[in-house]
Simulated assay, not measured.
Amino acid sequence: MQAESGGPPPGRIGVRVYYEDTDFSGVVYHASYLRFLERGRTEFLRARGVGHRELFEAGAGVHFAVRAMTIDFRRPALMDDLLEIETALEAVGGASIDMRQTVFRGGEALVCASVRVAVVAGGRAARLPEDLRRRLSGTG
C-alpha cells in the first residue's frame, strides 16, 4: 500500500439526521452511520471524477466494495442534527484504497472510521486502473 503524500484535500458533505435514522429514543442508530459514511465516500469519489454510474455504464470493468471497516463511536448524534462527513484518502494500493472518515457535529468528532475499499472486477480483486488512480490523487 502506497501512502498518498500531498494527496487531494478531504471532502466534506452535510447530512441531516431524520427520524428514520434514529432508534426509538431519537439517537442515531449505529447502522445509520454506515449510510452516512457511504454517502461521504461516494461524494469524495464524485468530486474527483469517479462516478459509480460512469464505471458501471462505461463498462470500465471495475467497482468498489468495502473490504474492512473499523468504527469508533465517540458520541451520539441526535434527530435533526446537521452533521458533516469528512472523507480523506489515506493510501492507494494496487487493488485497494484506504480512507479515513469522520462524522462531525459542529467541530466535535462523533464517529471516526478507517475504511479499506477493494477494487473488484468479475467478482475478484483487480488492479486499480491508472486513469482512476490519477483522478483519485488529483493529478488527472
Score class of each variant (00 low, 15 high):
24 F>R: 09
53 R>S: 07
57 E>I: 06
51 G>I: 06
19 Y>H: 08
74 R>Q: 10
44 F>G: 03
93 G>D: 11
60 A>P: 01
108 E>W: 10
28 V>H: 02
107 G>N: 14
15 V>C: 05
102 T>W: 09
102 T>R: 15
50 V>A: 07
60 A>Y: 08
34 L>P: 00
48 R>A: 03
1 M>T: 13
140 G>C: 08
103 V>F: 12
97 I>E: 03
69 M>I: 07
70 T>R: 11
49 G>W: 03
44 F>V: 05
59 G>P: 06
60 A>R: 12
99 M>D: 00
125 A>L: 15
48 R>D: 00
92 V>A: 02
5 S>N: 14
19 Y>Q: 02
22 T>E: 04
111 V>M: 12
125 A>P: 15
14 G>C: 10
122 G>V: 08
5 S>G: 13
38 E>F: 06
41 R>S: 06
104 F>I: 11
15 V>K: 08
39 R>N: 07
26 G>Y: 02
129 P>M: 13
122 G>A: 07
29 Y>M: 07
91 A>F: 02
66 V>F: 01
87 T>V: 04
109 A>G: 11
97 I>D: 03
92 V>Q: 05
105 R>H: 14
41 R>P: 04
37 L>C: 04
89 L>Y: 01
90 E>L: 05
127 R>Y: 10
81 D>V: 02
88 A>H: 09
107 G>K: 15
1 M>A: 14
10 P>N: 12
12 R>M: 12
33 Y>W: 09
105 R>G: 11
95 A>M: 12
100 R>D: 09
58 A>W: 05
76 P>H: 02
14 G>E: 14
132 L>V: 10
56 F>Y: 01
22 T>V: 02
101 Q>S: 11
41 R>G: 05
138 G>F: 05
79 M>L: 13
121 A>K: 12
114 S>L: 15
62 V>I: 10
64 F>C: 04
53 R>A: 13
15 V>A: 05
34 L>T: 00
123 G>K: 13
115 V>E: 04
51 G>K: 01
47 A>K: 13
122 G>R: 10
92 V>K: 00
27 V>Q: 00
5 S>P: 15
53 R>I: 08
55 L>D: 01
101 Q>Y: 10
58 A>M: 08
75 R>K: 10
65 A>Q: 03
134 R>D: 15
63 H>R: 11
118 A>T: 11
97 I>Q: 03
125 A>E: 14
69 M>G: 00
6 G>Y: 08
28 V>L: 05
25 S>L: 07
127 R>F: 12
25 S>A: 13
33 Y>Q: 06
24 F>E: 04
12 R>H: 14
88 A>K: 12
122 G>N: 09
43 E>R: 11
105 R>F: 11
69 M>E: 01
124 R>A: 15
7 G>F: 01
39 R>G: 04
76 P>A: 05
133 R>W: 09
37 L>Q: 02
102 T>Q: 13
28 V>E: 06
110 L>M: 10
31 A>R: 08
131 D>V: 15
132 L>E: 03
85 I>A: 04
